[in-house]
Simulated assay, not measured.
Amino acid sequence: MAEPTVGGPGPAGPVGPLPVTTVEELIRRRLSDALGGVRGSLETTLPMLAFVIVWASTADARLSLGAAAGLTVLLLLARLAQRQTPQFVLTSVVATGLAAFFALRSGNAEDAFLPGILTSIAWGIGALLSVLLRWPVVGFMIGAADPAIAEGDPFRWRRNPAAVRVCSRLTLVLVGLYAIRVAIMGPLYLAGNIAALTVAKVVLGWPLWAGAVVVMGLLLVRGRTPIDPDDELVRGHSLAADAQREHGPA
């Protein structure tokens, strides 16, 4: 059987698919698709970042939330104008809405941070349980970017034991990320330290996530789990590459 490939630019020409030889390489590409790249990550981060910056400058919760909402609308309009998916922008809408609900309902500025803390606790526990149950969260992220999901087979990745092991290691990185956030922001929230919470929200947001992605990348780059050419996880890539060679780039 020919070596499995992934469509994309390569040394052989503008369409020349690059070979996939390890589970780590395959997961790295799927993970990149699921996260939406740099733009998708920024879209989920910038509205709340606008919130904490304005709050630090004005101490006005309504103005801060308004700035976050305004930026969200601009990001959403940009996606719609380009006829692209707004899923990452909508994620920021949920986060901003929860912050507004908690802060305005209680009248306490620090309560705007409570949804994020509770979410980190829930995701941390859920991610750890997913590893223990051998259904790692990162595997679902990969499955979401798998063409097989359109065929009603979103769990094809789990039939590859090597992929499950690698996804488990990557999910433990996420467990560590959420644990750090809760360990730092939890005590600051209980102390009502709004200034420190504002700084922590920035530092433990995009920078910490970027650090986790770097750690994941190192694990994936250094890993050398071989791929079985007959494995179902690879077959979808091979079919996609064959179709691209036949019909040319979209």
Rank of each mutant, 00 (worst) to 15 (best):
M1T: 12
M1V: 15
A2R: 12
P4D: 06
T5A: 14
V6Q: 06
G8C: 06
P9Y: 07
P9T: 08
P11D: 09
A12V: 08
V15F: 09
L18I: 08
T22K: 04
V23Q: 00
E25G: 12
R29T: 09
R30M: 07
G36R: 12
G37F: 11
V38M: 10
R39L: 08
G40S: 08
P47G: 14
P47Q: 06
M48H: 09
L49I: 10
L49T: 15
A56E: 00
A59L: 12
A61F: 04
L63S: 09
G66R: 00
G66Y: 00
A67I: 00
A68K: 02
G70P: 01
L71V: 11
T72A: 11
L75M: 15
L76I: 11
L77A: 15
L77F: 15
Q82G: 10
R83A: 13
T85M: 04
Q87W: 10
V89G: 00
V94E: 03
T96F: 04
T96N: 04
G97E: 00
F101H: 09
N108H: 07
E110G: 13
A112Q: 07
F113E: 08
P115L: 12
G116M: 00
L118C: 14
S120I: 09
I121Q: 12
G124C: 02
I125Q: 05
L129Q: 10
V131W: 07
L132M: 11
L133M: 15
M141Q: 07
M141S: 15
M141Y: 13
I142K: 01
I142E: 03
G143F: 08
G143A: 13
A145I: 05
P147M: 13
A148C: 01
I149E: 01
A150M: 09
F155N: 09
F155Y: 13
R159G: 15
N160T: 11
A162G: 05
C167T: 03
V173A: 02
V175W: 01
V175F: 02
G176I: 05
L177W: 13
A179W: 04
R181V: 15
A183Q: 06
M185W: 05
M185N: 02
G186V: 13
L190H: 14
G192H: 07
A196H: 14
A196T: 14
L197C: 04
A200R: 04
W206H: 04
W206V: 09
W206Y: 10
P207Y: 08
A210W: 10
G211W: 04
V213H: 03
V213F: 13
V215A: 14
M216D: 03
G217N: 11
G217Y: 04
L218R: 14
R224T: 14
T225K: 03
P226H: 05
V234M: 09
A241N: 06
D242Y: 05
D242S: 08
Q244E: 15
R245F: 05
G248F: 00
A250K: 09
